[in-house]
Design a protein around this nucleic acid. Structure first.
Lengths: 299, 299
DNA sequence: TTGTATGCGTTATCAT
DNA sequence: ATGATAACGCATACAA
């Protein structure tokens, strides 16, 4: 019977199925930027495991505009998606309770919501930073500057802030707050613009929130007549494929991008199968890869 | 009435609409690699104009596997998408006649089909190459090597082959075929592996099919003790945002990626509105941007 | 103009 | 087991 159907090239109409079954067999992935290869790899990982379960991935990019994110969520709910994978803007993103309210399986990426418990997948936040700081400290660096993204609303920034301060205190007795630079945007130009502020604290090494930002910083340093790693060491957290490129070669903590997608999809499917199961958190490692941008401090 | 509906938060069920109207208000975009920012930007451009028309973009990445492309097309046809935007594998891709047969509005990217006329959007192929060759020739280069992707089935490779030969003949009297290197894959490693073959023809400048390939070539040259642009000039066609990155800085012909998506979506909508209109071709310019990887040949 | 019945292609239910 | 039937939520054609 099934093969007879396949012989004849017949296949059920998804629209009729969705109407009748009140679900679409689609899972939505809502991301800030579809041109960012990081999210592309997450999408690939998620699509892989969803296909196996007979579902499809629906990707929506909102280009960092909250009102677009809200619109895309509305749209997905209308489509009766089986689940939503979302990287929220902040830990107080109002769309998160809305989604939970709507009763749709939800997986948060990167951050968790402050009040609303959900399934979510993150990468280790403390370990890679500690590993990076230890790497620099072992190379002789003491004045290590760090960039932190977003305001105080960002849990990840706060966690990094605390981790940084604790490490510096434990290793060197004190943490000089002037070495901490808070940035709004995580782009190349943002890195370039941050250079004067960074240099004001006269660091010998800089930890950047991600590799694109690090590239901008390196470019700004070059304009200031400073070369990496000769004059300053540079380390990037949360890297993309860029860090490994010849000509870039940044020491960085590398995210398991595909795996993030895989785990997120897995959590969605698990909740579809068991709506009342307790929320689960998956924490993925982000090991440090030493490349050419960090060097021992000359004595 | 409409606003009354919106006040109450009501909105039509897409499934019921699709079932009744025999169309989904979705447009499919089928691409080789969702982690490639080039396709991300195309997707963004397409999504923008589709949203305005009340449609949504459905992105599917097949990771360069023909059988996956075929499956995704089947899936999209079942979903009754309003149209399909596709970058076919070759000018004889068998999925193309199938799609036309199915009667779904279809826009081809990059290449056109050899026998089946369709709407399509390409970038200029001859002009950027000629511009690049002229740029190198003006810098004093005579032995200009070039990489060509794919076998003889690739129309674009053939067009570039002819363009290259004609330019070299007209400018220097003859085209040395040993300067032409045919490659199968367009990846970083592929560029690195091509270096020995390229060097065998002792060129002073190299034209690479795209910037990732160029990066690989530069890396391979460095391993061979040759520096760009000091020892060799390097020029990339069909660039992505990579070329402009500090630390990369390749002279390259820059694709209007977003615009490709915009035009493709426009063509889909036009055909939805007028199914019998004649096929249209949009050719977008790809101007040369001179950066640090090309230099005058020392006398 | 406003209202009402029918069908789109499934699945689920109920009767056989 | 197998088969007929209703309902999912909309658009449309036709009646009032």
């Amino acid at each position: 019977m099934r093969d007879a159907a396949e012989r004849l090239g017949y296949s059920a109409s998804p629209a009729a199925r969705a109407l009748r079954m009140r679900r679409s067999w689609w899972v939505g992935l809502i991301i800030p930027d579809i041109a960012n290869p990081m999210f592309g790899e997450i999408a690939r990982g998620a699509a892989e495991v969803l296909e196996e379960a007979g579902c499809h991935l629906l990707v929506s990019s909102h280009d960092a505009r909250p009102e677009r994110q809200a619109g895309q969520i509305r749209n997905m709910l209308r489509q009766r998606v089986d689940g939503v994978i979302l990287q929220p803007f902040s830990s107080t993103d109002e769309d998160v309770p809305r989604l939970v309210q709507a009763g749709v399986p939800l997986v948060l990426l990167a951050r968790r919501h402050r009040t609303q418990p959900t399934d979510h997948v993150t990468m280790e936040l403390r370990a890679p930073l500690l590993e990076g700081l230890a790497h620099l400290a072992d190379l002789g660096h003491r004045r290590i500057a760090i960039t932190l993204m977003g305001g105080r609303t960002s849990t990840s920034a706060e966690e990094r802030f605390e981790t940084y301060c604790r490490f510096m205190r434990e290793r060197f007795g004190a943490a000089d707050k002037s070495l901490i630079v808070r940035l709004e945007r995580t782009e190349l130009v943002s890195g370039r613009e941050a250079v004067p502020v960074l240099l004001a604290a006269s660091p010998t090494a800089i930890v950047a929130s991600n590799d694109l930002l690090a590239l901008g910083i390196r470019d700004g340093l070059r304009d200031a007549g400073l070369l990496v790693p000769r004059d300053l060491s540079l380390l990037a957290l949360d890297d993309t494929f860029l860090s490994a490129l010849p000509g870039i070669e940044l020491t960085s903590s590398t995210l398991p991008k595909r795996q993030i997608g895989v785990e997120a999809a897995r959590l969605i499917l698990a909740r579809v199968a068991a709506p009342r199961r307790p929320c689960e958190t998956v924490v993925l490692p982000a090991p440090l890869v030493v490349r050419g941008s960090t060097e021992a401090l000359p004595a």
